[in-house]
Structure formats: C-alpha cells, structure tokens
C-alpha cells in the first residue's frame, strides 16, 4: 500500500516545528506502524537526509517507549494497543496519516516526535515505592495477599508508563499514571505503612510538574494500551481524601 505521512518535524526543543509531508511506498499490510516509518527513514538516510526521530524500543508493547499520536489518537486508532503493535492492515491504501508527538507542558519536545518524559520518573521517585531495604524482607508467604487484591493490584501494575494517558487527556492530566501506582500499592498489604505519605507526596508533585487536572473525560482509559481503568483514579482520590483528613500534621 502507498500512504502519505504528515509528520511533526522539530529540530530541537528550542526550535519551532511544523508538519512535513512524506510518501510511504510499497508498505506491506503486515508491517507494523513503526516498521513503516523505518522504511521511510531508510530512504531518507540513503538520501543523506535527517530521518524522522521517534522513540521506540521493545516493539512488542511492554516497554512504554513508543509515543506517537497518529491521526489525533495517542498510539493510533486501535484500542489497547501501543503504536509499536499497531499494524498497517488497519489503514487503507492512499490514507493520509498525521504523526505528532505527545503534547504536554510536562513533556517538552526533544526532537521531532521524541519528548522528554522524565517527569514520570520524578513522580515515581516522590513515593511510588515501598521502603524495604534489600535483605530485610520476611518470607514471601508470610505476607498473605487475597487473590482478588493481587489481581486488582496487577491490573493497575500493568501500566507501562508510556504517558499516553497524558497525551490523550484533554487537560494533559497525569492522573491515570499516578493512580495506577498509588492503587497498586494501596491494594497490597505491603503498601499500607506508607499509604498516606505516598498519595500526598505523589499527587503534590503532579501539580508542580505542570500536568493538568482530571475532569473525568475518560480519554485516558480509552487510550491506555494496558486498559487501566479510571476506577484507579477514584481510588487515588479516596486515598488522598482519607490521607488529608486523617494524618496528624497541622
């Protein structure tokens, strides 16, 4: 199949960007979306031109590196997909495809479609962990976790940290990413001791990093490649409210 790409090109963070048009020729419907861009890039390199920069790594939907907005949808048109597992069979010959980077104040563009998502790491560092020094754990089966809690925790823990929730949110809110981690740890007995501290520290940073606020538009949920539910955001809010009201600070 033959396609027309309109791709966001931007030399670096300080430059202005614009959409540029490229032709993708003889693309197999079985190729992945990123392989399609590879083909375009190979052609550009052969011509000595600057290939389209885009983040990608595992290409099997688990590392969370790939981050393209395809025709206005983060990770493209398929539900529960990352763009690296999107295949060209979902497009038609002759389609015009617009490719843009994640857009958020908290994710500045580095080049073309590559953005800096270090804010997500900083959010994790604020409290997305259980403080247990190596060596001090009890026997694994000494901590009983009801299967249902373990399953729910796993649903939340499946987050790949790609940031599509931010990219898709009309408000560029990071709530779903944050809630997934807070939920996972709140659901497990291991997470209880730091429960209040965690939710307060992590949610406080989301404002400081310049993310927007959740208004329950549910675009994050509809976009999330790992199908993480907004019920997690409700749980985060519940945790937040309880922590704010019950903790002993003044």
């Amino acid at each position: 199949m033959n396609l027309t790409l309109k791709v966001w090109r931007q030399k670096d963070g300080a430059s202005r960007g614009a959409l540029e048009t490229y032709a993708a020729r003889d693309i197999s419907p079985d190729a992945s979306f990123l392989e399609m861009i590879d083909i375009v890039n190979e052609e550009l390199i052969r011509e000595g031109k600057d290939p389209i920069a885009f983040d990608n790594d595992c290409r099997e939907g688990i590392c969370g590196t790939c981050s393209l907005v395809v025709n206005g949808r983060a990770h493209g048109p398929q539900r529960n997909h990352t763009v690296c597992t999107l295949h060209m069979r979902h497009f038609k010959d002759g389609d015009v495809i617009v490719v843009e980077p994640w857009r958020s104040r908290a994710f500045p563009v580095i080049k073309d479609c590559v953005v800096d998502r270090a804010a997500l790491d900083r959010l994790t560092a604020a409290g997305g962990y259980i403080s247990v020094p190596t060596g001090s754990a009890v026997d694994a089966n000494a901590i009983l976790v009801p299967r249902d809690s373990a399953e729910k925790a796993m649903d939340a823990a499946a987050c790949i940290g790609c940031g599509a929730c931010v990219a898709a949110c009309p408000n560029a809110s990071v709530s779903l990413f944050l809630a997934a981690k807070i939920s996972q740890l709140a659901l497990l007995p291991q997470g209880q001791p730091e429960r209040e501290r965690r939710v307060k520290a992590m949610t406080a940073l989301m404002k400081a990093e310049g993310f927007g606020n959740c208004s329950w538009e549910r675009e994050c949920e509809a976009t999330c490649p790992k199908d993480i539910k907004i019920a997690n955001i409700s749980r985060m809010n519940r945790e937040f409210l309880l922590a704010a009201l019950s903790s002993a600070e003044h």
Partner: peptide, 22 residues
C-alpha cells in the same frame, strides 16, 4: 529464595492462590 521474598516485599503482584499464598 531471598529474591522472591524481597520482590514480594517491594510490592510485586505475583499470582496468588485463593488463600493468599503465592
């Protein structure tokens, strides 16, 4: 064995039986 203990303590949501054991 210590690895499993530590990972559980870190909150890794391993699969569980109904009784709560791994």
């Amino acid at each position: 064995n210590a690895i499993i203990d530590h990972c559980v303590a870190l909150g890794v949501p391993f699969a569980r039986e109904y009784g709560g054991t791994l």
